[in-house]
């Protein structure tokens, strides 16, 4: 085995994820990095379905399903009870981008500001996929969705949820993607062993929503990292930035966009594409500068 991935599964086969579901894979990997003493909280999102219809479910940790905007606070409440009972169970909120960037942001901000002792994972597929591909504030510029049709594609940059979370000065916030499993697992393990609010932002491909073949899901997520569209990094205490993966072979963002049908409007608009390229460059430069602040010695890579 070339990966430092535990063989142990905390999910049973048989789930209702679509073929090639990045969200299903993200869950599988994250649970590998946590302990058996874990409770998951799932608000409305694809995973409300993926876990399976009553009376069965796929996950091998308790799952408390909750309302769309309540992942962080439901986890907080459960953790409070566990602590009151003298138990140190890990409570993980597991929400999509809609439940995190949009409707759940208030409760998430509240929990983060209070530094509640929870792990909050956002598996981000960059739109409301469960309801059939509507734009969220995580949807990137130039993207087609059913509510940003070709004639009027998404015009605003993806909300930078990491900066928002870092601004709460929580102990740990990190981006990850299952395309880089060792990086993801390492971050899960760091999060597991810290206390306070820990936030993992996991880019998770959605083949139907990204308009690509399911077999390309991993390749797309990998290209997102290698094109610096979705850099892998972590932020400690809201300030100390470490880039955890320096792309070895930079992929042209256009190649990343071209893998997915949802970016067709962007690819058809050279001016918008140029703006997006500048944005990607600027964001990366900003990130690198923050990394250098924290790591005065130039890092390898």
């Amino acid at each position: 085995m070339r990966f430092g991935i535990p063989l142990e599964e905390r999910i049973e086969p048989g789930n209702l994820g679509c073929q090639g579901c990045g969200g299903a894979l993200s869950m599988r990997m994250v649970l590998k990095g946590l302990s058996d003493d874990t409770v998951a909280v799932i608000p409305a999102c694809c995973w409300s379905i993926i876990d399976g219809p009553w009376p069965v479910h796929a996950l091998q940790v308790p799952v408390f399903h909750t309302a769309f905007e309540t992942a962080a606070i439901m986890a907080t409440g459960i953790k409070a009870a566990k602590l009151q009972q003298g138990k140190d169970t890990t409570v993980m909120a597991w929400a999509g981008d809609g439940g995190t960037f949009d409707i759940g942001l208030q409760a998430l901000s509240g929990a983060a500001e209070r530094n509640e002792d929870i792990i909050y994972v956002c598996y981000d597929n960059e739109a409301y996929m469960n309801t059939g591909i509507q734009r969220s504030s995580s949807t990137p510029i130039g993207t087609w969705t059913t509510t940003t049709p070709d004639e009027r594609p998404e015009t605003r940059p993806k909300k930078n949820i990491m900066e928002i979370m870092a601004a709460h000065r929580i102990p740990y916030a990190a981006t990850a993607t299952p395309a880089y499993p060792d990086d993801l697992l390492a971050k899960v393990e760091i999060a597991r062993d810290l206390r306070g609010t820990r936030f993992l932002h996991i880019l998770s491909a959605c083949p139907p929503g990204w308009k690509m073949g399911s077999g390309d899901a991993i390749a797309a997520m990998r290209a997102a990292v290698d094109s610096r569209v979705f850099p892998l990094y972590e932020v400690r205490d809201g300030l100390d930035v470490t880039i955890t993966r320096w792309p070895e072979h930079e992929v042209d963002p256009e190649a990343y966009f071209a893998m997915q049908g949802r970016f067709r409007p962007l690819l058809d608009d050279p001016e918008e594409l140029a703006r997006v390229r500048r944005l990607i460059d600027r964001q990366w430069e900003t990130l690198v500068a923050r990394h250098r602040e924290h790591h005065p010695e130039p890092a390898a890579g």
């Binding site: 049973e12 086969p13 048989g14 789930n15 073929q19 009553w54 009376p55 069965v56």
Partner: peptide, 17 residues
Amino acid sequence: IPVSLRSSRGVLRTGDW
């Protein structure tokens, strides 16, 4: 309550898809 009674293994035969 709507609490699951068993795991999905052997029930959700997603291989049929």
